[in-house]
Amino acid sequence: MRLGFNFTLGDTYDTVQRLLAEGRIDYCEFLIDNFFCVDPDELAKAFDCPIGLHIMYSKFLEADRSTLVEFAARLKDYIDALNPIYVSDHILRFSHEGRAFFHLGEIDYAAEYGLVRDKVVEWQEIVGQRIHFENYPSIMDGGLEAPAFFERLMKETGAGVLFDASNAVCAHRNCGTPFEAWRNVIAKAQHFHVAGYRQSLIEPFISLDTHAEALAPDTLAFLENFRSVFDKPGATMTYERDDQIEFDAIVADLKALRDLFGQPEERRHDLALTA
C-alpha cells in the first residue's frame, strides 16, 4: 500500500516536501481544480513523486455538457503534464433548486441510480478516462444503500471507486451501514482515502467527516480487519488533513498506517537497489 497526503493549497507545500523527504509518504494527491490557474508544467515539478488527481468542483451531476467539456479540457492539461496514478471525483449534490449547499448533500441511491449511471458514463467519456468516485460519509438511513449502489455502478460503467474508509466508518456509526457490505467494493477498489472525524455538537450525536483530527480507533480497527482486502499491488491510500495541520500528529497517523500495511513493494525495491 502506497501512502499519500492530500495537497489542497500552497500553505502545506513545506509539509508535503518534508513528508516525502522523510519517507512518510510515497505520493501526493492534488485537489486539482484548486490549481487550475497554475501552469501544469510548474505543478508537475512541484513534488518529486507520483501524483493522484482529486476533483472537487466538477459538479458533474448538475453541470451541463458544455460546462463539463470546458472543465475537462482544462483537466486534461494536468493529466497530460502530471501523468497521474488516478483521477477521482465525488458523487454529491452541490445545490438544491439552484441554491448552494455549504454542507454537501448525499444522493438518493435508489431513486437516482439511473441518472447517476448515465452522468458517470458521460463524464468519463468527456474526460477520456476511467474516474474513481468517492463514497459519502452517510448520515441518514439512505446510506444503507450505498455499498450496493457503488458495486453496481462499477459493474455497469467501468468506473472505479475511491473508497474513503473513514467515510464508511461515519456511515457505519450514523446509519449502521455494515463494513461487511463494502467488502466487494473494497476488493475491487485500488485507491483509498482515510482521515479523522468528529461528533456533532448536539445529540443525538452523528459523526462528521472533518479531516482535522487524528485517525479514530474504529477507523484503524476497520483497516486492520480488512487489511488484506484493502492491500493489493498498485493500491494507494491518501491521508487527508485539511485543518489542524500539526506535523507530528500527521506523522503519528502515517506511522500507524505504515505499521499496518508495511512498506510498499516499490519502496522496498528501491531500497534493495540502493543497498
Partner: peptide, 11 residues
Amino acid sequence: RTDRDLYPALM
C-alpha cells in the same frame, strides 16, 4: 429516510 428528503431544510 434519505439526505435528499432533507434538502429543502438544509438552508
